Computed example of a mutant assay.
Amino acid sequence: MLQSIKQNWFSNVRGDVLSGLVVALALIPEAIAFSIIAGVDPRVGLYASFCIAVVIAFVGGRPGMISAATGAMALLMVTLVREHGLQYLLAATLLCGLLQIGAGYLRLGSLMRFVSRSVVTGFVNALAILIFMAQLPELTNVTWHVYAMTAAGLGIIYLFPYVPKLGKVIPSPLVCILSLTAVAMYLGLDIRTVADMGDLPDTLPVFLWPEVPLTFETLAIIFMVVTVVVVVFTHNLAYGVLAGVLLAAMFFANKVGHYLHIGSELDAAGHQRTYRVVGQVFFSSSDKFTGAFDFKEALGKVTIDLSRAHFWDITAVAALDKVVIKFRREGTEVEVLGLNQASATIVDRFGVHDKPEAIDKLMSH
């Protein structure tokens, strides 16, 4: 147990402290911005982010995990807060937590295998656009100092990593936040600050039960509608056909995902292991693919034979990149061979493990 605590909590103290500082400083304006989007007091977003971040640090499922107020949830809560008030938002939060705990006990996380990497990428990009749009009001009808600080911030974030030695040791967002804050305070620039967006809390939050009636009507309000009706209730065959096609696709993907075998053999000297992959690698089987490799085994070289495998999508390519980069981080030489023409085409187009400039960027994170 002590070894596990040491590994999870003290194996990368410098990196954890620096990343914690970045998250803490960047989370304040983000939480306030999302509070404004949701239509609640900025203190609500700050309290929520603080509580969630602390809880997830101790009971989170993986090291380095962070969770806080997000734009995706803020958008969903706009109508709820506007029509029913803050108390229903708190009740919805508690219900959401219970549903997530239930999903965890039922191991529904395995269903994420059916979510393609392209879908996740689209969601993250949409969230980035939402964050950008939330900041647009801060860039209109302002003094030139704001535009100068914005340009300086972008310059520091994107150019500081190229500074010899320091660029790969200190996160550029942290440098940006600290340096520009110091400049603004020293020069007394006429720019809006976090405090201008709302009152900052000066006490710790207190746990209170939401003041809502415990009725089915309340539950219906929290769920905010959305009854899925297929054929029987709508008498619309098109909905039934669509639902049938989607279910058939899921069952087929699940079935094909199980037809993946990865075996390995160690050479006589004990320095080189060859992994042989047989089957289809795509979004449903990518986790099984990455889980079949032992990254902690002390080896000089690893050969991944893909002559009897096929890579179908960018999720599979990302899984291959992850495997190769993890081995290289452990100091192991990796050779990938046997890709068929179709697989080689998609790997060459979307893969990064054989692109030195991309590898340097990934290895520095």
Rank of each mutant, 00 (worst) to 15 (best):
A53H: 00
V54Y: 13
I52V: 15
A53Y: 00
M73N: 06
I101K: 12
G45Q: 01
C96V: 06
L89C: 08
L94P: 06
M77N: 05
H84T: 05
L86F: 12
V78L: 09
Q100Y: 09
P63N: 10
S67N: 12
C51L: 15
V59Q: 04
A92E: 00
C96P: 01
A74E: 00
P63S: 06
F58E: 09
P63L: 06
P63H: 11
P63K: 06
R82T: 08
A92R: 00
A69P: 04
I66K: 08
L98G: 15
V78K: 12
Q87E: 14
Q87P: 10
A68E: 03
V54A: 12
A74C: 05
T79I: 04
G60E: 12
A69K: 06
G102V: 01
V78E: 01
E83Y: 13
G85D: 06
L46Q: 02
L46K: 04
F50T: 02
A48I: 01
T93E: 02
V81A: 06
L90H: 02
A103L: 06
R62M: 10
V59S: 04
R82C: 08
Q100C: 09
G102M: 12
L94D: 06
I66M: 12
A57E: 11
I101G: 11
V78I: 13
L86I: 09
M73W: 11
G61H: 11
S67Q: 14
V78H: 09
G85M: 08
F50A: 12
A69I: 09
A72P: 08
L98E: 07
V55W: 06
E83L: 13
M77T: 04
T70C: 03
A57R: 14
V55C: 13
Y88K: 03
T93C: 06
V54F: 15
A68S: 14
L95I: 08
M77W: 02
G45V: 00
A72W: 03
S49M: 03
R62K: 15
F58T: 07
G102K: 02
M73F: 15
G60D: 10
C96R: 05
L46E: 02
V44D: 00
L90F: 14
A74L: 05
E83K: 14
A92K: 01
S67A: 15
V44A: 14
T93L: 09
M77A: 13
V54N: 07
A48S: 15
A69F: 13
T79C: 02
M77K: 05
V54D: 07
G102Q: 02
M77V: 08
L80T: 00
L99G: 11
C96A: 13
